[in-house]
Design a protein around this nucleic acid. Structure first.
Length: 462
RNA sequence: GGCCCCUUCGUCUAGCGGUUAGGACACCGCCCUUUCACGGCGGCGACACGGGUUCGAGUCCCGUAGGGGUCACCA
């Protein structure tokens, strides 16, 4: 069975890089009918917070990704780690090292000065050096001294490391707590993870983890090292650009499916297809098809996708989101459907849908000074006549009916569309630029139109 | 610096020895049009460089350059 996992360390919110690797893992597990597990890597008690864990869970919930079973917290599995450290010690595959941090630092500094790679020299490996008074030992695991390993990475292909590049790294600190490369291997093995999909910043950690797998006789998983996401300038993602909290996207009016679609196309593709429903992703995604190279964060494409998904969202969903997330209540509006159809057509975010809707919900509180010049006495008079015309017409209701009245009025009055349209938009929205007038009239209704015209008239007269 | 990874339009990418190197976003132009958008049509625009292998290379090999990652008692 395919078992994947997402293993964040709860030191902050979840950003799109993390969300993407989680998405890849999730899609692959689901496609294979396997399991997608969540493991919270909180062994570094000082840097973790419960709030961060909750933020990650919240983001998962928003995008609709669910993990199987209970989340695993590493902080609650110290017994498991301790047992295996003891076992390795017993079997002579790990050993106590009494080199203090200070001595180690001094060694490294010296090596660096000589132009060598800073590394542990293995002085306690063969057990000939005894304990040092006053030094709590760390536990180091024995890495092979020669030869090499080749990782058959599902994305990068075969990657070879020489063992002499791999130190006898620390698996337990002086205080007895286990370290990252050790617990990752233990947990992945015990959780039955078959496919490790993670950022390629972990590629060079992999040999270390294989040392643990091998020492304990665990079955090695398949690895997929996903290239990083860079910012628009091709540099590492920072908080300034894409590394913002995933939930920020929600607050800015992005739809989760747009974000997911955007992320799945970063590094992965299926021919020329750009739009992927969740079902399609689930049916098509394969981590073996992920590109080898890093990709840059491209906010305008995200925006485009978001606009696409907004246009294709049912109105009632949008109404609900607008109400719940954006304090914009258009529930029960007389012309709800027309209003939403109009608003979502040009919007790329829910914020923009809201801004558009706001034009109808509330009357203009100010008029664009530049456009106010349109409100000439003749124009106002024409508008008055237009409203009177609407009142005496057969009671238009739909946009097409209003359009017919506009056409009839234009014909009867001899006025041209711009002469009517520009000041009418000014009266309705406070600016010469705005939604289609036939739609606008249908949404507002004659009385509201009359009221807004009055508003303009009194604004001009004061 | 050592080791490892990467390199097709500005960006995301298709390509899997023979293509006028395709699509998408962005940009520009035209059309639609009562404004702004949407939409439609079109345009601009790429195989990092140098050597091989081959009848033939974006595709395979080797270098170079550039970018990235990693070298912790962080994860």
């Amino acid at each position: 069975m395919t078992v994947t996992r997402f293993a964040p360390s709860p030191t902050g919110y979840l950003h799109i890089g993390g969300l993407r690797t989680a998405l890849f893992s999730w899609l692959w597990a689901r496609r294979q009918g396997g399991k997608f597990l969540l493991r919270i890597e909180d062994t570094d008690l000082a840097r973790n917070s419960q709030a961060a864990t909750e933020a990650i869970l919240e983001a998962f919930e928003w995008v609709g990704m669910s993990h199987d079973g209970e989340a695993v917290y590493q902080s609650q599995r110290f017994d498991l780690y301790r047992r295996h450290i003891a076992r390795l010690l017993d079997e002579g595959k790990a050993y106590y090292c009494y080199m203090s941090k200070e001595v180690l630092d001094a060694l490294r500094e010296e090596q660096q000065k000589r132009g060598e790679r800073p590394r542990y020299d293995g002085r306690y490996r063969d057990g000939t050096l005894g304990p040092v008074e006053g030094v709590e030992p760390v536990v180091r695991i024995k890495a092979p001294l020669e030869g090499s390993v080749t990782i058959e990475d599902g994305i990068k292909g075969p990657v070879t490391f020489n063992w002499d590049e791999v130190d006898d790294f620390i698996i337990a600190r002086a205080d007895g707590s286990p370290t990252y490369n050790f617990v990752v291997a233990i947990d992945d093995a015990f959780m039955g993870v078959s496919d490790v999909i993670r950022g390629d910043d972990h590629l060079s950690n992999t040999p270390k983890q294989l040392v643990v797998y091998r020492a304990l006789g665990f079955k090695e998983p398949k690895f997929f090292h996903v290239p990083m996401i860079l910012n628009e300038a091709g540099k590492k993602l920072s908080k300034r650009d894409g590394a913002t909290d995933v939930m920020e996207y929600k607050h800015q009016g992005y739809l989760p499916e747009a974000l997911l679609n955007f992320l799945v196309r970063l590094g992965w593709s299926h021919g020329d297809q750009e739009i992927f429903s969740l079902e399609e992703m689930l049916a098509l995604f394969d981590p073996n098809d992920i590109n080898k190279s890093a990709s840059a964060y491209n906010p305008s494409k995200l925006l485009w996708l978001n606009g696409h998904y907004i246009k294709n969202s049912p109105n009632d969903r949008l109404i609900k989101l607008l109400h719940e997330e954006f304090e914009c209540d258009i529930r029960g509006h007389d012309a709800q459907e027309i209003l939403l159809d109009l608003c979502k057509e040009k919007a790329q975010t829910l914020e923009e849908v809201k801004a558009q809707a706001q034009l109808f919900i509330s009357r203009p509180t100010a008029y664009n000074p530049k456009d106010l010049a349109l409100a000439t006495p003749q124009a106002l008079e024409l508008l008055e006549r237009f409203v009177a015309h609407l009142r005496h017409s057969g009671g238009p209701h739909l946009p097409v009916e209003y359009q017919a009245e506009i056409d009839r009025f234009l014909k009867e009055s001899g006025a041209k569309m711009p002469a009517l349209g520009k000041p009418l938009r000014l009266a309705l929205f406070g600016q010469a630029q705005g939604p289609s007038l036939s739609d606008a009239l249908a949404i507002l209704g004659i009385e509201e139109v009359a009221a807004r015209l009055e508003g303009l008239v009194s604004a001009v007269n004061t």
